[in-house]
Every structure is written in structure tokens, then in C-alpha cells.
Nucleic acid binder design. Sequence first.
RNA 1: GCGCCAGUAGCUCAGGCGGAUAGAGCAAUUGCCUUCUAAGCAAUCGGUCGGGGGUUCGAGUCCUCCCUGGCGCGCCA
Length: 551
Amino acid sequence: MKAKNYISEKLTALMAARGFDLPAKTTIEAPKSAQHGDMATNIAMVMPKEKGQNPRALAEGIKAELLAQCPEIESIDIAGPGFINFTFRPSFWQEVALNALDRGADFGRIDVGKGRKVQVEYVSANPTGPLHIGHGRGAAVGDSLTRILRFTGHEVETEYYLNDAGRQMRLLGLAVWVRYQQACGVEIEFPEDCYRGDYIKDISAALLAEKGRALLDLPEEEALDLCYERGMKDILDGIKKDLIDFRVEHQHWFSEKSLVDGGQVEATLNRLLAEGRAYEKDGALWFRSTDHGDDKDRVLRKSDGLLTYFASDIAYHDNKIARGFDMMVDIWGADHHGYVPRMKAAIEAMGKDREALQVILVQLVNLIQGGEQIAMSTRAGKFETLADVCAEVGVDAARFIFLSRKSDSHLDFDLDVVKQQSMDNPVYYVQYAHARICSLMRKAEEQGVELPEPSAGLMAMLTTPEDKALFTCLDAFEDTMELAARTLSPHHVSYYLMELAGLLHRYYTVHHILSGEDQDLLRARILLFRAVAGVVRTGLDLLGVHAPERM
RNA sequence: GCGCCAGUAGCUCAGGCGGAUAGAGCAAUUGCCUUCUAAGCAAUCGGUCGGGGGUUCGAGUCCUCCCUGGCGCGCCA
């Protein structure tokens, strides 16, 4: 059993005997400093007191009771203002490794979600150009989050929302059309505010190669349509390929156009209007978002009759709600943060708890090379694509870097550093720990070491500080999963893995595994390492990073 | 002007619900390869947690006011 759960159960029982619940402010955690024991609680400071009782005296009472009834606990100390510090017997920790071996790839799996239906919608980049590095960050976060949520008892569906209606698409068609004409030798100026990237020229060149100069003879509207369709298809194919290369695969691709053409946007707007949540003013249709905490009401249909993006976004989320998700996770670029209040307002207006929508804002990525920031802009056609960056540094390194920061903090992505295979680049540090263990296993096999079944007897040989450090770290894996799932923050997994890898590397240096005389000790250590390797593999898999067997 | 996010070691960043002496990596200095992968380990150096006030047994964490940076504030998409 996990140390934290063990203490928690004992304290709960103890409080129940006194007629109380476990106080909400109770903390049970591994203290920062090892001299404060294995686990510490503040319960004596936060529990209900009678007059004249002080925390230290209460702690003494708890100590006496627990010592008497918990054989797994070796000692209890009272410290500072009233902390109770527990030290477990070695056998308690040794059991953690046995448990990890027993559960294998399921070690750390925990039912936080209780089968709740979750949708994760991410990337959803407009199909007007290749994915750049910022989209890559969103892709990594969304994919890893999906893996973590599935691992923690959530039923997850993933989706890419395709903005295939509206002005951006017309601009794309126009850009292709102009490049096509230029390629045909027509003297025509390239419009401002249009996509200038070379990929547009590639598309028109392909169109020219395929159809010749035929488009020039068509009415302009038809030609534009052809250009738009071709441009969108080519770009979308590129995006899908980039995502697959990045190990990201969405289950659903949801078309905005289908929503508009199918009349769902109109239906949603009519319902809002009928319910008094929208109103006509100055020839436009407005959503009463101020009723739900937004600063001002928002336009749904402009006086020229065109729908705003917000209108289709509401209809889209209406559709999500109808699909019965308990939680909708939207992953957006942080520059859209101003959009959150109105979207939450819309969710609430449609009768759902506003907390059912969780927006994760992913900050922009600063791509740095040679100590200088590389500017990114799709319109100007000057950017590093995700595919370029992956080709340069590898998918593993790119994903790990994206996932080793809180998603809403800025990220400096230094190409020169990420290319290095050094500790500047923690992905190798973690992977190396795994490869080292695998290598050791191969060597052991060559030496003819027979691997025994895991047993408490063998584990009892592991009593050094390095052993205990690994045991307690393994014990914390489940907590890390719970934290990452509850806060929707994959970066906790990266940090955990770096710590575990660090302990493994230290162990490897301090204890020479294969040269020892004692064959049982050797076997015990191999079992421990096997448990560690399993957790590293599980953790890396949750980040979508490979765990190589040799490096 | 209003709002959101950020400000922690020279650099890049962690720090669930307020807990004990604020952590990690890099950089710098110094040790460790006849032995399991040195893509490693150990040690040293490094801090007014942006600043002031407040809340309390206790604040990097909560409240408040400033300062700095990024972003957002449209009948744009």
C-alpha cells in the first residue's frame, strides 16, 4: 500500500474514534528534508481542540496510539510546532517495488476519472499553412493529456476542430489563385494580408502541372473555388502527416462548414433567441454574455448578415454538450485568453456548468537559434515548421521539451541546446536511465544470472539509502498521476521522471551491481531495476516519448 | 484606460489545500572511468522568491497597493 494512503487511513480511523472527520486542511506528504522522516502530517495543528490543548500535546497522544497499533511504522517524532513525522520499517518500502513488479504496466494507474466522459479538443489550427512549432506544443500537451486522462480512469475522445468556413479560407483560395496566375505569366500583384509562404506556390504549381492553364478560361468564381479546395486539401494532408509524424492522431475531425451548412448554427442561435439569451439590436444579433460574467455582450450575427466565429463556436460547443461529455477540454493558444469568459458564458447559457469547459492556454514558443529569436508569422510566410524542427532535433526531444514546462508559461525552445545530447536536454537523461537498465539486464543474462520470482525475502536485502530513495520515489508515482490528471498538467510527469532517473543514475554509480559476490543481492537489485525501468517506460509513454533499450 | 498571465540563483525553470533550513538542471570551480554505457556520479559556489503593506502559530503560496514584461480588449478572423 502507498505510504500516503496508509497514513491517511490510520488518521481517518483515529479521528473517527474521536467523533470527527479528517480535517480538510490535513496534509500528509513526504517532507522536503529526510531528517523529518518518511511522511509527515500537520493534523495536530489543524484538528479541533479543546481549550488549553496545544498541538504538541495532541501530537503526543496520536503518536502513542499509532505506535501501538501500526507494526509497519518504525518510529514517530514530534517536531516544530506540532508536526508528526513517521518513519516506516524497511519492509514497508520494499513492498512498493514488489507491487510495482506485480502490476507491471498498470502500476500507477488510478481511478481519478471514475469513467467520466472527457473530450480533448486540440491543435485545431486553421488549414491555411503548415503547423509551426507553437502548434506542436499544443499537440504535445493535448496528446499527453489524453494519455494521462485515459490512464487515470477517464473515457477520452480527441478531436480537431476544422475552421473550414469563413474569410480565412477565401483568403487562402485567393492566394493560390494569384500565385497560379503569376505562374502562368499573368501580370498581377500579390494582395496585402494574404498568405505569402512558399507552400502556396507549391500548391499552385501542382495545380498548374495537373490542369495546365485551364483555370484561366473559367469564370473567376469557379477558379477561386478550385484553388480553395485544392489548397485546403493539400494543406490538410500536410497537417495530418505532420501530426502523425509527431505521434499525434485525432479520433475525430469536426468540420465547421458542416455545422453551418447543416443549419446547426442557426438552430442554436434561434434557441438562444427564444430563451431570451440573445437579442436584436442595431440590426445585429447579440448574445447576453453579461448575464454570465462577461464584460460585454457579444455579436453573433453582424448587421451585414454574416455570422461571427463566436456564433459557430457556440454551436460547436452546443454539439459537444449534446454528445454527453462531462468535461470538455479545449487547448488554445494563450493569445486567445480573452475569449475564455465569453465561451464559459455560452456554456452556462446552454445549461451546463461553466466548469465543464476547461480551457488550457498554451503559451507561445520562442524559437531560438544562435542566441537569437526567430520570428514566426504564417502570413509573412516566415516560420519554422513543426516538421522542420522535428527533423532537426527529433520527436522525442521536441515533445519532452514541450512537456517540461507548465503549459501557460512562455517556453524558450533553443534549437542549439535541444540538438545537444547533454543534460541541457533532459530527455536523454531520462532515456539513458532506461537504456542503462536494459543494458544491465542483457549483461546479467550473458553472465547466466537466473531471474527469480519477486519475493519479500529478496527485497529484504535492499536496505541502503539509495534503495530507500528509489522505493519512496516509486511510491510517489501514483500521486504524480493523480496530480497531473487533476490539474490537467503533463509537466508533472516530466519532473517526476527526471527525479527518478537521477536516483537511478546515482544508484548505478554508487553500487556496482554485477561484480558483487552475493548472488541474491544481485537478483534483488535486478528486480528493483526492473521495477524502475517499468515506471520510466510508463511515464515516458504518457508523454509520447520512446524508451530506448540502448543508446 | 480595463482585463488575463508572468516576475524565484548568472541562464532555463519546478515549487497540489499556506508548513519545517526555498529546489532542480545548465553555467562556473574541483574531484571520479584497468570493472555493469562518463549521454553518468559527487562536492563547492550561487537567493531581499519584483517592491511596500496586510491576514496568522507559520506566506514564494492568500488579500491589497505599486513597478516591470507578455498578451488580449472590434458588428476581426
